[in-house]
Design a protein around this nucleic acid. Structure first.
Length: 298
DNA sequence: CCGACTACCTGCCCGC
DNA sequence: TGCGGGCAGGTAGTCG
């Protein structure tokens, strides 16, 4: 589920509760998610303050005062929710009787922020368990397998048409597959790749190298694609941000928000580009659904 | 090296 | 109403 905009939305929602808070207790309800939890996960977090919550691509990174970084990935179905537990709040610390633990709540962080007089818990729920958590010493983070070789942040300064040319030059794989490949650009997933290609008017099945030529037409194509990627991510983050307040107020859950897509999951709908009379099609590409316009993405 | 394919896991939706 | 099949927003391992 979560691509970069959703993870950023989750980060913004969790930050006020995680940042500056001491993790007073960790409930780790199973030995693994997608991967085993690291050695002494609970022990290495308990009693430690998180100074800041960051994001790299689709990973959340919590900086702990111990020098560790708490790395969290939501996989396909991971989400967090926030529950206030301090005095005067409706929930108390014994919210879950053992008999009716919510399904798929795998990790519970109990938090106290003494400066803000805030007590809360942050609960990680993940039905499919494709998510994972790890603890990595800060000094090792960039060299770690997870982050070494990871591509650029699409919202950073590097991404433009010419950077795309250097990335995709000579690549015979499809534009779709290249954009999904995290070692080129990190953070895009199936939805936003479909959306960006539609905005740029590019065929998902065209070779990645097809936007790398010297001519003015291809130069324009890659510039358009870079802009489309940035725009669609920015807009989705904005939409997530505007949904944040509602989510926290209603049930505290973070990780899902409604967003209207132009092509994703719109099979059969008319293309929304002005003056385009095409229809949105779905085709399986590399084992995953690609949504694109039959007409304007030639 | 590269690219294509598969596995991991649960839930939901659809058609029979 | 029950059941089987297909599908889901991610990643990593294997194989050619």
């Amino acid at each position: 589920m979560p691509e970069l905009p959703e993870v950023e939305t989750v980060r913004r929602g969790l930050a006020p509760y995680f940042e500056g808070s001491i993790i007073t207790r960790v409930e780790q309800r199973r030995p693994d998610l997608r991967f085993p939890f690291p050695e002494d996960f609970v022990g290495r977090l308990t009693g430690i303050r998180m100074t800041s919550l960051g994001r790299r691509a689709k990973y959340l990174t919590g900086d702990m005062e111990s020098g560790d970084v708490l790395v969290m990935h939501l996989g396909m179905s991971g989400s967090f929710r926030i529950e206030l537990t301090g005095p005067g709040t409706p929930l108390v610390d014994t919210y879950y009787p053992a008999s009716k633990l919510p399904q798929h709540d795998h990790v519970v962080f109990h938090l106290v922020n003494p400066d803000a007089a805030l007590e809360s818990r942050i609960i990680y729920n993940d039905p499919r368990r494709f998510g994972f958590m790890d603890l990595i010493p800060r000094v090792d983070l960039h060299a770690h397998k997870m982050f070494a070789g990871m591509g650029i942040e699409p919202l950073g300064n590097e991404l433009d048409g010419e950077y795309l040319r250097t990335l995709f030059d000579g690549k015979k794989t499809s534009l779709k597959a290249a954009l999904l490949n995290q070692k080129f650009i990190a953070g895009l997933g199936n939805i936003y790749v479909c959306e960006a290609l539609w905005r740029a008017g590019l065929n998902p099945k065209a070779p990645a190298s097809s936007i790398c030529g010297r001519g003015p037409k291809q130069k324009e194509k890659r510039a358009l694609l870079a802009t489309a990627i940035r725009d669609v991510l920015h807009e989705a983050i904005e939409a997530g941000g505007s949904s944040l307040r509602d989510h926290v107020q209603t049930n505290g859950s973070l990780g899902y928000f409604q967003h209207r897509f132009a092509v994703y999951d719109q099979e059969g709908a008319p293309c929304r580009k002005p003056d385009c009379s095409g229809t949105i099609l779905r085709e399986v590409q590399n084992g995953r659904s690609t949504f694109f316009c039959s007409s304007c993405q030639g």
